[in-house]
Design a protein around this nucleic acid. Structure first.
Length: 154
DNA sequence: GCCAACGTTGGC
DNA sequence: GCCAACGTTGGC
Protein backbone atom coordinates (compact mmCIF):
# COMPACT_ATOMS: atom_id res chain seq x y z
CA UNK A 1 0.00 0.00 0.00
CA UNK A 2 1.28 3.43 -0.89
CA UNK A 3 0.69 6.84 0.59
CA UNK A 4 -0.22 10.08 -1.13
CA UNK A 5 -1.04 13.71 -0.61
CA UNK A 6 -3.75 15.38 -2.65
CA UNK A 7 -4.42 19.10 -2.75
CA UNK A 8 -7.78 20.76 -2.90
CA UNK A 9 -9.07 24.21 -2.21
CA UNK A 10 -11.43 23.93 0.75
CA UNK A 11 -13.69 26.56 -0.81
CA UNK A 12 -14.16 24.15 -3.70
CA UNK A 13 -13.93 20.77 -2.00
CA UNK A 14 -12.58 20.33 1.52
CA UNK A 15 -12.69 17.85 4.35
CA UNK A 16 -16.20 19.00 5.32
CA UNK A 17 -17.44 18.16 1.85
CA UNK A 18 -15.71 14.80 1.79
CA UNK A 19 -17.12 13.84 5.16
CA UNK A 20 -20.58 14.74 3.93
CA UNK A 21 -20.49 12.87 0.64
CA UNK A 22 -18.38 9.91 1.82
CA UNK A 23 -16.96 9.06 -1.61
CA UNK A 24 -15.93 11.49 -4.32
CA UNK A 25 -14.52 11.12 -7.84
CA UNK A 26 -11.30 13.16 -7.89
CA UNK A 27 -11.86 14.71 -11.28
CA UNK A 28 -10.42 17.62 -13.17
CA UNK A 29 -6.71 16.90 -12.83
CA UNK A 30 -5.20 18.28 -16.03
CA UNK A 31 -1.50 17.96 -15.41
CA UNK A 32 0.45 15.14 -17.00
CA UNK A 33 2.67 14.33 -14.06
CA UNK A 34 -0.32 14.07 -11.73
CA UNK A 35 -2.26 12.20 -14.42
CA UNK A 36 0.44 9.55 -14.57
CA UNK A 37 0.22 9.02 -10.83
CA UNK A 38 -3.58 8.75 -10.94
CA UNK A 39 -3.52 6.41 -13.92
CA UNK A 40 -0.53 4.20 -13.16
CA UNK A 41 0.29 4.32 -9.49
CA UNK A 42 -2.69 4.91 -7.23
CA UNK A 43 -4.52 1.79 -6.17
CA UNK A 44 -7.62 1.00 -4.20
CA UNK A 45 -6.71 0.74 -0.53
CA UNK A 46 -3.96 3.36 -0.66
CA UNK A 47 -4.22 6.20 1.85
CA UNK A 48 -3.89 9.90 1.07
CA UNK A 49 -3.70 13.09 3.07
CA UNK A 50 -6.20 15.72 2.05
CA UNK A 51 -4.32 19.01 1.89
CA UNK A 52 -6.14 22.32 1.94
CA UNK A 53 -4.51 24.74 -0.48
CA UNK A 54 -5.00 28.35 -1.46
CA UNK A 55 -6.73 29.27 1.78
CA UNK A 56 -6.08 31.15 4.99
CA UNK A 57 -4.20 28.33 6.72
CA UNK A 58 -2.96 25.84 4.15
CA UNK A 59 -2.31 22.44 5.67
CA UNK A 60 -3.24 18.80 6.04
CA UNK A 61 -6.84 18.34 7.13
CA UNK A 62 -7.64 14.66 6.97
CA UNK A 63 -7.09 11.20 5.61
CA UNK A 64 -8.73 9.64 2.57
CA UNK A 65 -8.71 6.12 1.27
CA UNK A 66 -8.44 5.45 -2.44
CA UNK A 67 -11.72 3.67 -3.12
CA UNK A 68 -11.07 3.04 -6.81
CA UNK A 69 -7.81 3.16 -8.72
CA UNK A 70 -7.24 5.17 -11.88
CA UNK A 71 -9.96 5.19 -14.52
CA UNK A 72 -10.81 7.64 -17.32
CA UNK A 73 -12.12 11.05 -16.28
CA UNK A 74 -15.25 11.38 -18.37
CA UNK A 75 -15.66 15.06 -17.58
CA UNK A 76 -12.93 15.56 -20.20
CA UNK A 77 -15.25 14.52 -23.02
CA UNK A 78 -18.36 16.15 -21.65
CA UNK A 79 -19.03 19.25 -23.78
CA UNK A 80 -19.67 22.34 -21.73
CA UNK A 81 -18.19 20.84 -18.59
CA UNK A 82 -15.68 23.07 -16.87
CA UNK A 83 -13.06 20.33 -17.24
CA UNK A 84 -13.89 19.63 -20.88
CA UNK A 85 -10.89 18.81 -23.08
CA UNK A 86 -11.81 17.85 -26.64
CA UNK A 87 -8.49 16.05 -27.07
CA UNK A 88 -9.73 13.33 -24.72
CA UNK A 89 -12.21 10.75 -26.02
CA UNK A 90 -13.74 7.54 -24.61
CA UNK A 91 -11.70 5.59 -27.16
CA UNK A 92 -8.49 7.35 -26.23
CA UNK A 93 -8.84 8.93 -22.80
CA UNK A 94 -6.21 11.49 -21.94
CA UNK A 95 -7.17 12.29 -18.36
CA UNK A 96 -7.80 10.01 -15.42
CA UNK A 97 -9.22 10.17 -11.94
CA UNK A 98 -9.55 8.04 -8.84
CA UNK A 99 -12.36 7.78 -6.31
CA UNK A 100 -11.50 8.82 -2.78
CA UNK A 101 -13.37 7.92 0.40
CA UNK A 102 -13.49 9.78 3.70
CA UNK A 103 -11.39 8.01 6.28
CA UNK A 104 -11.10 10.52 9.11
CA UNK A 105 -10.29 14.07 10.04
CA UNK A 106 -7.01 14.83 11.70
CA UNK A 107 -7.33 16.00 15.29
CA UNK A 108 -6.20 19.39 14.03
CA UNK A 109 -5.18 20.87 10.72
CA UNK A 110 -1.43 20.55 10.50
CA UNK A 111 -0.34 23.79 8.86
CA UNK A 112 2.16 24.02 6.03
CA UNK A 113 4.20 26.40 8.16
CA UNK A 114 4.73 23.60 10.66
CA UNK A 115 5.54 21.03 8.00
CA UNK A 116 8.16 23.39 6.63
CA UNK A 117 9.91 23.52 9.98
CA UNK A 118 10.44 19.78 10.24
CA UNK A 119 13.82 18.55 8.99
CA UNK A 120 12.18 15.12 8.56
CA UNK A 121 10.04 16.54 5.77
CA UNK A 122 12.58 18.66 3.96
CA UNK A 123 12.63 16.31 0.97
CA UNK A 124 8.88 16.64 0.37
CA UNK A 125 8.07 18.64 -2.75
CA UNK A 126 5.19 20.11 -0.80
CA UNK A 127 7.48 22.22 1.34
CA UNK A 128 9.55 23.38 -1.59
CA UNK A 129 8.88 26.72 -3.12
CA UNK A 130 7.02 26.83 -6.39
CA UNK A 131 5.75 23.28 -6.20
CA UNK A 132 2.46 22.99 -8.03
CA UNK A 133 1.85 19.29 -8.35
CA UNK A 134 -1.57 18.48 -6.91
CA UNK A 135 -0.95 14.77 -6.31
CA UNK A 136 2.24 13.76 -4.55
CA UNK A 137 3.66 10.49 -3.28
CA UNK A 138 4.47 10.44 0.45
CA UNK A 139 7.06 8.04 1.85
CA UNK A 140 6.09 5.78 4.75
CA UNK A 141 8.53 7.69 6.95
CA UNK A 142 7.01 11.03 6.01
CA UNK A 143 3.52 9.66 6.53
CA UNK A 144 4.28 8.41 10.01
CA UNK A 145 6.08 11.56 10.95
CA UNK A 146 3.20 13.77 9.86
CA UNK A 147 0.79 11.63 11.88
CA UNK A 148 3.06 12.05 14.89
CA UNK A 149 2.45 15.80 14.63
CA UNK A 150 -1.28 15.33 15.00
CA UNK A 151 -1.01 15.17 18.76
CA UNK A 152 1.59 17.60 20.05
CA UNK A 153 3.58 15.79 22.69
CA UNK A 154 4.01 18.36 25.41
C1' DG B 1 -4.62 41.14 -4.29
C1' DC B 2 0.21 40.44 -5.47
C1' DC B 3 3.44 37.99 -7.79
C1' DA B 4 6.95 34.14 -8.27
C1' DA B 5 7.17 29.77 -10.13
C1' DC B 6 5.81 26.63 -13.18
C1' DG B 7 3.49 24.04 -17.21
C1' DT B 8 1.60 24.57 -21.72
C1' DT B 9 1.01 26.54 -26.16
C1' DG B 10 2.23 27.92 -30.59
C1' DG B 11 5.05 30.70 -33.90
C1' DC B 12 9.10 30.22 -36.16
C1' DG C 1 13.18 21.91 -31.18
C1' DC C 2 13.60 26.47 -29.22
C1' DC C 3 11.63 29.79 -26.42
C1' DA C 4 8.54 33.82 -25.54
C1' DA C 5 3.96 34.54 -24.25
C1' DC C 6 0.42 33.17 -21.65
C1' DG C 7 -2.51 31.06 -18.05
C1' DT C 8 -2.60 28.86 -13.61
C1' DT C 9 -1.20 27.67 -9.00
C1' DG C 10 -0.84 28.82 -4.49
C1' DG C 11 1.76 31.01 -0.57
C1' DC C 12 1.84 35.16 1.55
Amino acid sequence: MRHWLMKSEPEVFGIDDLERVGVEPWEGVRNYQARNLLRDEMQAGDLAFLYHSNCKVPGIAGIMRIARGGYPDDTAWTPGHRYHDPRSTPENPRWFRVDVAFERRLGRIIPLSELKQAPELSAMPLVRRGNRLSVLPVSPQEWDFILSLETPRD
